[in-house]
Every structure is written in structure tokens, then in C-alpha cells.
Design a protein around this nucleic acid. Structure first.
Lengths: 192, 192
DNA sequence: GATTTTTATCAACAAATGTTGATGTAATAA
DNA sequence: TTATTACATCAACATTTGTTGATAAAAATC
């Protein structure tokens, strides 16, 4: 009963990430699920609704994750490590949702679009705050904090391509460690 | 005579990067150019042709750039710096073409798609070779060279968003220097 | 001025696409 | 059993979209 619901949702997101939102047709989705097109509308009100639900769902995951990290009483270096873990975990567990964050969110309609952008900015600001704190404390080198956030996050955001589209050659743990070394070296004041 | 051709081409790419290839309609393009839809087909054989031309054009720019860097007799560190300059220059001069490289290339049809992927891989391999050489020479820390290439390039590839979609707060030179510090710190064996 | 090339106009087509309505069947709950 | 809910089928509609053909004005070339 809920089974089909879930399969429908997963297959839809998979298609969105493979072909893009606009490049995905309800007929193709029906094809993959081996059912009739009209049938899909038992699961969703519209094609757009699927995108909207997914975008806000994954966005929420990030907020829950970052809020937990913020509340931890650990050093800034460790917080950065935790953010990397957050990204890698979500990339491995929800790869297709992640891929929406790179581009497909553009296809959101108002007012969802504005709300999404606002929430995403709020997330980025939380990261920026952590980095800024690190700079003030002297852990991180003094650079444009907005650029630092951006470089940091864009390194992470595209992980999906490398580790779902191609066959992964590095383990999750190894990936995490190397990402950490790379990113933290770029931000850190002293040699890590 | 060539004037309109150029304006047509530029406006098309601007739309592609704003709304995506599939999200761009010939009617909207005509609207922006203040002409009739049918008129567009005086400039191109098809909508797809515009994308194809642009993708291979910007790809070629990157190959020309990297080949020149390869042929330079300078240290690996400097080559990395040059690659960053290449990206930043192209991002500033051809922002909309750059944005095609992130996603819109997916909309290429065969056989253009395969050819594009092949050329892009060739470019990435050239970068990988430079990084590997740096590791062998001891300039760069020993990490998975494929991951290093990927982290390096994805930091650069998304520059477009930050510096055309939002109002730039950093100058081109400042950006270049900070990018260099960030990236090279992440890759370098010793403190830069 | 004649001719060729470039640009414009209008209408229309063929295919694709999201979505609905009407109707029927299978499963679940009462 | 009965009533309600979940799923399936088929056909069809209303738009949207890329593209073309016929035709003519405008500009460039000779």
C-alpha cells in the first residue's frame, strides 16, 4: 500500500536526476513503473508537486543536520569535518535528491521557488557563520568568508556526479578523509 | 549583417543559462530579439544546433588554453595557477557558455553527446596529468589524483553562479588570488 | 538598375506533454 | 456482506513547442 508510493517517488527522482525535470515525461515515468500514465495521478497532484516535495525534503535534511552540528560543543575544525560527513552521508543515502540541489530546483514555481531560495540561503549562512567563527578564532585563514563558503560547498555539492554516475573507486570513509584534508587545507591557517 | 547573428547567438545562450535548454522556447527567444519565431531559422538550422555549437566552442577554448599551459616550461604550481586563470578568464568573458558545461550539455543528442563527453574527459585527463606530475615531483600531497582533479575542477566550474548571477563583491584579481590560495593549499604538500 | 542575399511576416502542422473524467477492478475495513 | 479505499484502463483534451513553406520587403553586391 505504501510500497508503490515509495517506488513511485524514488523512480521519479531518479528520472529527474538523470534527465532533468523538464526532460522527464510522465509517460516515461509510467513506463518505468510499468503502469499507465493516468495512474501516476493517484500518487501525486502534479508533476511539479513531486519536485517541490523532494526539494523541501532534502533541504530540511540539511537544516536538521547543520543545526545539530551548530549545537555541538566542538572546535570549528571538527564542525567542518561534520559538515563534510553530513554531505557525504546524504549523498550516499539520497543521491537523487542531492542532484536536485544543483540545478533542478530552478524549475520550482512561485511561491515555492522564493521559499526554497530563502531556506537555502539560510543554510549557507549557517555555514558562513561557522567559517567566520573559525577565522576570528584564528583556526582558519582570513579570506573572503562568502567566497570560502562557496568554495567549500561547491566542492561538496557535485560529489553526486562522481559517486553515483560513475563507479566509485574510493570507499566512503576514504572519500571522507580525503575531502576533509583537501577542504580543511584550503581553509586552514596552519598545515593540517 | 553579422551583427544580428551575434546578438541572436548571445541571447540564445543567455536564455539557455537562465532557464536551461529545455526550459527555453524559441518563441521566448524571438520575443527577446523582438522578431518573429520563424525568423530565428535564418540564423540556425535548429534549436539543438545552437547548443551543439556553443558546447563545442567553449570546450575548444578550454583545450586551447590547457594545451598552451602544458607547453609552458614552468613549475607545476604555476601551471595550476594558470589553469585557475584560464577558468576565471573564460568565466568572465563567456559566462553563459560556461554554464552550459555544468548541466546543459546533457541535452546534446548523439553522436554529439558522445563526442562532447570524450573531449571533456580528454581535458580532465590533461589536468590530471599535471596534478599527477606535481605529486610525483613532491610539490603536491599524495591523494587520489582523480579525486583531486575533481575537487579542483568543481571548485572552478561553479564560479559562474557566484559571479554572474549575484553581484560580484570581489575583483577579478582578488578572486584569482584567493582561489589560488584555497586550491593550492588543498593540494599542496607544504604550507603555501 | 539588376540580382542575389539577407531578413521579415503570417499561418499552419505534427508531435509531445501534463492532466482529467468516466469507469471498472482489487483490496481493505466495517 | 458491505462500504470504502486504493489502483488500473482507456480515451481524449487543451496547450505548448519545434519547425516549415510560401511570400515579400530590405539590403548588399554586381
Amino acid at each position: 500500500m505504501k510500497e508503490k508510493h515509495i517506488r513511485f517517488y524514488k523512480e521519479a527522482l531518479k528520472l529527474f536526476s538523470e534527465r532533468g525535470f523538464k526532460g522527464t515525461t510522465m509517460r516515461e515515468l509510467a513506463n518505468r513503473l510499468e503502469c499507465d500514465v493516468a495512474n501516476l495521478y493517484n500518487y501525486t497532484k502534479s508533476k511539479h508537486q513531486i519536485l517541490e516535495t523532494a526539494c523541501f525534503s532534502i533541504n530540511n535534511d540539511f537544516h536538521v543536520g547543520i543545526d545539530e552540528i551548530i549545537s555541538m560543543e566542538i572546535q570549528t575544525n571538527n564542525k567542518i569535518h561534520q559538515i563534510i560527513r553530513l554531505y557525504i552521508n546524504l549523498t550516499f543515502t539520497k543521491p537523487h535528491e542531492i542532484s536536485l540541489l544543483v540545478n533542478e530546483w530552478r524549475n520550482l514555481k512561485e511561491p515555492a521557488l522564493s521559499r526554497f531560495i530563502q531556506e537555502r540561503n539560510a543554510f549557507e549562512n549557517k555555514v558562513t557563520d561557522i567559517l567566520r567563527k573559525g577565522m576570528v578564532e584564528g583556526y582558519l585563514k582570513n579570506m573572503d568568508v562568502s567566497l570560502a563558503t562557496y568554495l567549500f560547498l561547491s566542492s561538496l555539492r557535485l560529489l553526486f556526479d562522481k559517486y553515483t554516475m560513475t563507479t566509485p573507486k574510493i570507499s566512503k570513509n576514504n572519500l571522507e578523509e580525503q575531502m576533509y584534508q583537501y577542504v580543511l587545507s584550503g581553509l586552514s591557517k596552519v598545515q593540517v
